[in-house]
Every structure is written in C-alpha cells, then in structure tokens.
Computed example of a mutant assay.
Amino acid sequence: MKTTITLIAAVLLLMMAGCKEQPPADARYPFKSAIIKKITGGETENTIYIDDYGAKETIETILADPMTTSIHALRIRLPGGEFAILVNLLNKTANLISSDEMYTYYGITFKDAEDLENYKEIGEEEVAGKPCKVYLNMTPDIVGDENTVKIWNNIVMEDFTISGEQTFGSCITSIELNVPIPPEKFEIPKGIKIKESPNE
C-alpha cells in the first residue's frame, strides 16, 4: 500500500513539473510578471510593471524635487513593442512615443556576454537581494571615467559612472517576480487628453 501511494505521489509530482508554464518564444522577459523599482539620476523613481512575459509593460516615473520641475508620468508599451504612450499625470495629457524612449533611461537594461566584451569581471555583490557579478568597463566613453555594472541574470541591477567628482547612473532597489499585477496598470487613466502630436 505504501509503495502504491509513493508511486502515485511521484507521478503527480512529475505531472506538476511537466505542467510548469514556459515562456513563449517571443517573450521579452524570462519571468511572467514583475514589479521592479529603479532609481535613475539619484532622484527619479521608476516603478516597472510587467505581465505576460513583457507583452504588457508600464513604467511609472516620479520626480518630486522642489529644485526642479516635478514629474509624474506613465509610459505604457503598446502591443507589438514599437511604440508606447507617454502619459503626463500632472497636466492630464498623453502622446505617442517610440519604445526606445521608454526603455533607454527608465526601463530594464539587459547585457549579455557580447555586450560585456569590453568589461572585466572584478567581483560579486548583492543588489536588491540578488547575487550580482560586478564588471568594470575597460573602455569608458571618456578617458578617466570609471564605469561599473552589476548584473544578475543578464539584468543590469546597477550601472554607475564616476566622472571626476560626480557620480551618476541607475540602481534597481527592489524586484518582485511572478506577482499578480492589477490590469489597470496597463491602461490610460480616465480624464487624459490624447494629443495628436507632442507640440499640441
């Protein structure tokens, strides 16, 4: 009897393992969903919402610095990935932008072995609870600058450059994977005027 129960349990475990959802071939991310918080420029807070392996993605950006213009914006990627909607939540307007504008500074950056050809691995460090490899850029854009990146699963968790007495870059401060994301995070809020062009 014990043998039969053990066999049934083993078969069920194998079936469950076989039913584990696999990312689609065109998946943008290796995880189904995520909420990621990222600081850029030392003051700009970005919250990245991802669902369906990246088929849905929104970046919420907040800059609340009294010394400069405040920002509260959403960048909502449209199906196909070529374009996004930029929503200005302060003046209640929205306009079309390229997805390059969405990802270049605010979103997640990936680097694989090819991207790291000019980098040297110099150690390991934990960032936002993830074990990262630390790389030093051996060919920085400006001679004398020191650029380091910290990478976990090809995701750039930190990217900082020291130039003279200045330090600038970005850092992921938290990353929650495979969590439920409210559908409204990928929708344009009510009361937003869609502009035909950025100058309208």
Rank of each mutant, 00 (worst) to 15 (best):
residue 64 A to K: 12
residue 37 K to Y: 03
residue 67 M to N: 14
residue 76 I to W: 09
residue 27 A to S: 08
residue 60 E to T: 02
residue 24 P to H: 02
residue 26 D to V: 00
residue 63 L to F: 02
residue 50 I to S: 08
residue 35 I to E: 13
residue 45 E to F: 08
residue 26 D to M: 05
residue 35 I to H: 09
residue 77 R to W: 00
residue 51 D to I: 03
residue 62 I to A: 07
residue 70 S to I: 05
residue 25 A to N: 07
residue 43 E to G: 03
residue 60 E to A: 13
residue 34 A to R: 06
residue 26 D to H: 04
residue 31 F to E: 00
residue 78 L to A: 11
residue 45 E to R: 11
residue 61 T to H: 00
residue 55 A to N: 15
residue 66 P to A: 07
residue 47 T to V: 15
residue 41 G to N: 10
residue 24 P to L: 04
residue 59 I to T: 07
residue 55 A to E: 15
residue 63 L to M: 15
residue 74 L to K: 14
residue 81 G to M: 11
residue 46 N to W: 04
residue 29 Y to N: 03
residue 63 L to E: 06
residue 40 T to M: 10
residue 55 A to F: 10
residue 77 R to N: 04
residue 61 T to M: 14
residue 72 H to M: 03
residue 58 T to W: 05
residue 39 I to H: 07
residue 31 F to R: 02
residue 39 I to A: 02
residue 36 I to H: 09
residue 36 I to P: 06
residue 45 E to S: 12
residue 52 D to Q: 15
residue 44 T to H: 02
residue 69 T to R: 11
residue 81 G to T: 06
residue 29 Y to C: 03
residue 53 Y to V: 02
residue 57 E to W: 00
residue 64 A to C: 00
residue 47 T to L: 08
residue 38 K to N: 12
residue 81 G to V: 06
residue 40 T to I: 15
residue 53 Y to P: 07
residue 45 E to D: 13
residue 77 R to Y: 00
residue 55 A to V: 02
residue 48 I to M: 12
residue 55 A to Y: 12
residue 48 I to Q: 11
residue 40 T to A: 13
residue 80 G to D: 08
residue 32 K to V: 04
residue 44 T to A: 13
residue 52 D to T: 03
residue 65 D to R: 03
residue 45 E to T: 12
residue 78 L to S: 11
residue 42 G to Y: 06
residue 50 I to N: 09
residue 24 P to Q: 05
residue 31 F to I: 04
residue 42 G to P: 12
residue 65 D to W: 03
residue 46 N to Q: 09
residue 37 K to S: 14
residue 75 R to Q: 14
residue 34 A to G: 14
residue 78 L to V: 02
residue 27 A to M: 02
residue 26 D to G: 03
residue 36 I to C: 10
residue 74 L to Q: 11
residue 31 F to T: 01
residue 27 A to L: 05
residue 33 S to V: 07
residue 41 G to E: 09
residue 45 E to C: 01
residue 47 T to N: 07
residue 77 R to M: 15
residue 63 L to K: 11
residue 44 T to G: 01
residue 49 Y to R: 06
residue 32 K to G: 02
residue 78 L to Y: 04
residue 48 I to L: 14
residue 24 P to K: 05
residue 72 H to A: 05
residue 35 I to C: 04
residue 43 E to T: 12
residue 46 N to S: 13
residue 65 D to N: 15
residue 49 Y to N: 03
residue 25 A to C: 00
residue 39 I to D: 12
residue 26 D to L: 02
residue 40 T to C: 12
residue 51 D to A: 15
residue 72 H to D: 06
residue 75 R to P: 00
